[in-house]
Design a protein around this nucleic acid. Structure first.
Length: 228
DNA sequence: AATCCTCACAACCGCTTTCAA
DNA sequence: CTTGAAAGCGGTTGTGAGGAT
């Protein structure tokens, strides 16, 4: 399904431009992109309300932020998700569920929106197919990866997304992860596992081992300690 | 050739979290 | 400590492209 991103994808896909409540909605034009890009390069990210006002763009702050983060930012790479990236997304999704922003942080140049779209359009089916083939003989029915993760990670008040991120941080490499581990080491003293667990390894075995995070015990994810 | 269906993707919406006053 | 604004996040929608019938 090739979408030509080299011309102006905004004009070829997405919602039609419309003007409502004094604000433009829908696809961004090349001119709007240019104005926004120039402003952010000059003044930096953040203060999106100011961006919208100062540039004269009839766009909401949210819309400006989204456009910059997902498309205009210089280090964004679009399309052609490699196999190793795909594999990493699948593994991270098993661990984290639908926490796209956390997953995206492990894939340099990829945005949460892109990963989310890719998951829903492509990977979800792949994972479902492979897991149904793989687990046909298992007694335990497969769950949706996100539901499974939430279930096995005991997503309650004691385990915030941030904490999960820190727990995963040192262990995922998958080829891409090694450089990222060095890039953002967990802060010392930061709480990296829930208080209920006495140690990192206990949390590790609880989430990855005993609970069977991926539902297929014969195809387990590597544990934190294995990957470390 | 026309119509329908599915896919891929951009962007919006609403909720939650963070942070400054 | 409270509150309101801004930022961040995930879910969902709407659209065009292309394949199938």
């Amino acid at each position: 399904m090739g979408v030509n991103h080299s011309s102006n994808p905004a004009l070829e896909m997405g919602r039609p431009p419309c003007f409502e409540d004094g604000l433009n909605k829908g696809v961004w034009t090349a001119h709007e992109d240019e104005v926004l890009g120039n402003y952010v390069k000059l003044h930096g990210e953040g203060k999106w309300v100011n961006v919208a006002k100062a540039t004269g763009l009839k766009r909401s702050a949210k819309s400006c932020r989204l456009r910059w983060l997902n498309y205009l930012k210089p280090d964004i790479k679009r399309g052609n998700i490699a196999l190793d990236e795909e594999d990493l997304i699948i593994r991270l999704h098993r661990l984290l569920g639908n926490r796209w922003s956390l997953i995206a942080k492990r894939l340099p140049g990829r945005t949460d929106n892109e990963i989310k779209n890719y998951w829903h359009s492509t990977l979800k089916k792949k994972v479902q197919e492979s897991s149904s083939n793989h687990c046909k003989s298992k007694k335990k029915p497969m769950m949706e990866p996100s539901a499974e993760s939430a279930e096995s990670l005991k997503m309650d008040s004691c385990l915030s997304p941030t904490k999960i991120f820190h727990a995963v941080e040192p262990s995922i490499d998958g080829g891409l992860g090694k450089e990222m581990v060095a890039e953002q080491p967990p802060e010392s003293g930061d709480e990296i596992f829930p208080k209920n667990f006495a140690s990192f390894s206990e949390f590790d075995s609880m989430t990855v081992g005993e609970c069977g995070i991926n539902g297929c015990q014969d195809d387990p994810l590597p544990s934190f300690s294995d990957l470390g």
